[in-house]
Design a protein around this nucleic acid. Sequence first.
DNA 1: ACACTCATGTAAGCTGTTACATGATTAA
DNA 2: TTAATCATGTAACAGCTTACATGAGTGT
Lengths: 193, 193
Amino acid sequence: MPAGVVNLNFFILGLLAQKPMSGYDIKRFMKSLGWLIGSPSGGSLYPVLRALLQEDLVTVKVIPGLDKPPRKIYSITDAGRQALQSWTEQPVVASTSLKAFVMRLLLADSHTKAGLLAHLQQRRAQVAAHHATLVKGAGNLDEGSSLGQRVALDYGMALARAELDWLDSTWERFSAQPLRKEDDHSDGEASGV
Amino acid sequence: MPAGVVNLNFFILGLLAQKPMSGYDIKRFMKSLGWLIGSPSGGSLYPVLRALLQEDLVTVKVIPGLDKPPRKIYSITDAGRQALQSWTEQPVVASTSLKAFVMRLLLADSHTKAGLLAHLQQRRAQVAAHHATLVKGAGNLDEGSSLGQRVALDYGMALARAELDWLDSTWERFSAQPLRKEDDHSDGEASGV
DNA sequence: ACACTCATGTAAGCTGTTACATGATTAA
DNA sequence: TTAATCATGTAACAGCTTACATGAGTGT
């Protein structure tokens, strides 16, 4: 997998590591998560499966559907597990996107508890930086700023605070030690998307 | 603008409706919002400006930078305002994405108070649906569900609830205390919800 | 009869990115 | 002098979507 491939390929590989599924199963599962990730269209999903096959990261077994269309059940291979691990090991790409975070979260079983905690902490740093950016922006509001700007900033800050709260309480749930560090120094412009 | 063009073109047009700016100004402003929208790269931003120019939705004035590189300040035209309005009038595309919502929010000044309230309400319906999906998913959790699934669902629900709270309190803030626009000659009541 | 879900797949296109290129000004 | 910020722009490509295509079963 040419290293540029970022999200969907590895995430689907991760799902197949938890249990064998068909393309349609994957779609339904992702759909059940609302827009946390979003259900991929056939135009992206099936090509991914074919690519995983071609790299021997998964195998397929066609089950001729009795009374149903045939289903192609994909299972992860040893090579697939290896590829997946080398992916989960490297830090989440500086993507601040909710999607990337939730994808990793869903595959929590594929990494260790320490890995999960590290992931939460990483996200916390990113959200804190985002929040700091918004606070700074709110501080710069002057007469030239529109109503829309104020409302949007308020919205962003409310959501960021809620996420920080969740991250803190979840951290505490999973570790005895609190995550809280009051020096949320803005590392400033880590913001990409 | 061939109707397929969705986000960035019209949003930038909306920013230019609030005040004339250069491409760099737009970038900086969007960056100041953290990842609420995300700052577009030069590869998408400048082509958009050129496209807006070609359709006479904006004009440009080159200001030879004294001690600085020259800046190209873009201003919206009458045709631009018209195009913008026909965009803000049509309902937000069934995009559940945070980005699309915040973009419209930021341009609150470009639509009426009723429009803003309608936008909030529309978002509320979408978030509520998303939340319901997650609740249903949480109800279906059984022995086959992983830790990651539980945590991810919990995360999603927490964020959705927080957003619903914000939407409700913001709704009350604006429907109780009407927001003033200089030329707010419009439709006094928000009754049409 | 009609529409919808199950189930897979292809082709084309949209929207954005990264990487590259230029060039001047300011701070270490 | 080296790097960073200001400021604009192009070319290539990545990642996804929509629309299309197929075909069987299921429900109204």
